[in-house]
Amino acid sequence: MSIVKVESINKSFGKKKILHDVSFEINEGEILGFIGPNGAGKTTTIKLMLGLQSIDSGEVYINGYNLRKDFEKAIEKVGAIIESPDVYMYLSGRENLKLIANLYGGISKEELDELIKTVGLEKRIDDKVSKYSLGMRQRLGIAASIINKPNVLFLDEPTNGLDPQGIIEVRDLIVKLAKERKMAILISSHNLSELDSFITDACIIQNGKVVTNCPIKKLKSLDVPKYRFKVNKVKGIKTLFANKKIEVPDDETFELEIDKKEINSILKKLISNDYEVYSLFKVSMSLEEAFLKETGGNSIE
């Protein structure tokens, strides 16, 4: 059963249409990468899914509840960080968490301490948040968003603005949470390669339209094998393989998208045409390239 269901939502700001029939679902245990360039409409979509902005048409269901009609129930088991972690700078980390815990009720001090440990803030939790680094604030934000033990987590570019160390920390935390708590997670980013190591599904959005929505495995399976040949010269190589997909990065290298059964015949062709083959190996396509292939070559950046 899908925990989150977005049904062809549309949104315009004035005359400018931002989202066109955006639909997707997130199931239990899935980590959906919501990927698209800046301005694609990721933040807008997430805000619509949280009721922070009004939906022009379409529906959002969370845990089976219609967000518009049953807001309080739908949002009950949702944790979210949008744009930047929303925390009160003039309070300490602990005070921030206590306030949120108070809103949900029934959260013991031990649970709170446990949570603080989970996000690794136990040493600085009683300092004013204004003294935190952005990474610490992001971790506090994540702690705040999972106080109510949600089964859904929306994270809008959680690694934005963090240094490499911070990115790794936050990523590890998300992976840990996904494993331990079995949440349905939506995580947005403008950078596919940042996510491809741990998301289970990818939803790619461009100019307000979902262009790809599939399991990451499928995206990876698009990984048509590609072979890199090192040769003495590349002159005339393109005409030789005019019927194949070929790339020529430099004077001694070319890459072919072929099946491994074809290798022998390729080699024969090369040798009979006076090319010296120095080496040959398989290269993997990155997720990004796979995506480009799928969408017909538009860059997402």
Binding site: L50, G51, L52, F71, E72, K73, I75, E76, V78, A80, I82, E83, S84, D86, V87, Y88, I100, L103, Y104, A144
Partner: peptide
């Protein structure tokens, strides 16, 4: 921006 924090509560 902290208003978002409140608005996504039940």
């Amino acid at each position: 921006g902290t208003v978002k924090l409140l608005l996504v509560k039940p």
